[in-house]
């Protein structure tokens, strides 16, 4: 799959919330987009991600 612009291999489909946890993300401070669609936080437990997906995880940083 394409994750934050980089190709990574997802050997099997995974629940989004588990994927984020494995990657070390705190779900309360991020937003997730899969195939250019925003996934609401309430959907993290029900969303399955696939190796064919394009995913972006973003957070806030300092900026003017």
């Amino acid at each position: 799959m394409k994750f934050n612009g980089k190709e990574i291999l997802l050997e099997k489909d995974v629940i989004l919330s588990e994927f984020l946890k494995t990657m070390g993300y705190d779900a309360s401070v991020i937003a997730v987009e899969i195939n250019y669609e925003i996934i609401p936080k309430a959907e993290y437990d029900k969303t399955l991600i696939h190796n064919s997906d394009t995913m972006e995880v973003v957070n806030f940083v300092g900026g003017g």
């Binding site: 934050n4 612009g5 990657m23 070390g24 993300y25 705190d26 401070v29 991020i30 937003a31 972006e56 995880v57 973003v58 957070n59 806030f60 940083v61 300092g62 900026g63 003017g64």
Partner: peptide, 17 residues
């Protein structure tokens, strides 16, 4: 205060919030 949005590449790092 303004903030910017960026790819979260450093999971687990300190968050500005």
């Amino acid at each position: 205060a303004t903030l910017a949005l960026r790819r979260a590449n450093n999971a687990g790092s300190e968050n500005i919030l």
